[in-house]
Computed example of a mutant assay.
Amino acid sequence: MVSSRSVDKAATVLMWLAGIVILGILVIFLGYILYKGLPVLTFKFITGMPSDIYAGGGVGPQLFNSFYILVLSMLFSIPVAIGAGIYLAEYAGNDRLTDMIRLSTESLATVPSIVLGLFGMIIFVNMLGVGFSIIGGSLTLMLLNLPVLVRVTEESVRTVPAYYREASLALGATKWQTIWRVILPNALPGIITGITLTAGRALGETAILIFTAGTTVSRNLPDFDILAAGETLAVHMWYVMAVGLVPDRIEIANGIGALLIITILIFNLMFTLPSKYIQRKLAGSDH
Rank of each mutant, 00 (worst) to 15 (best):
L149H: 01
E154W: 10
F119T: 03
F43V: 10
A199E: 09
Y239T: 13
L17T: 11
G24D: 00
V115C: 14
T140S: 04
L17A: 11
Y54W: 06
V111Q: 04
S275W: 01
R181D: 13
I25P: 10
W238R: 04
R151P: 00
E90V: 01
T272L: 14
I114G: 14
K281S: 05
K44P: 08
G19Y: 10
I86R: 06
G58V: 05
R96Y: 07
G19I: 03
L146M: 08
L146N: 06
G57I: 01
I191M: 13
F67A: 03
A234W: 09
P147E: 01
G137N: 06
I278S: 06
I262T: 06
S66C: 08
R151I: 07
T159H: 12
L233G: 03
G57H: 01
L88S: 02
A213D: 06
I135E: 05
S107V: 08
G257W: 01
S113N: 11
G137L: 00
N186K: 05
G60P: 00
W176F: 15
L14V: 11
M237S: 05
F29N: 09
I135N: 04
G120T: 01
W238M: 04
A258E: 00
T193Y: 03
L38Y: 05
Y32L: 09
L72G: 07
V80C: 06
R201F: 13
E251Y: 11
A242F: 01
M241T: 15
Y239E: 12
V13H: 08
L197S: 02
T105L: 02
L34H: 03
P161I: 00
A84E: 06
D286H: 10
E166D: 13
I53D: 08
V7Y: 15
I33N: 15
R181F: 14
T159P: 10
Y277F: 14
T110P: 06
F271W: 10
A187H: 04
F29S: 14
A89G: 05
H287I: 14
L23F: 14
I86H: 00
L23V: 11
L269P: 02
A10T: 15
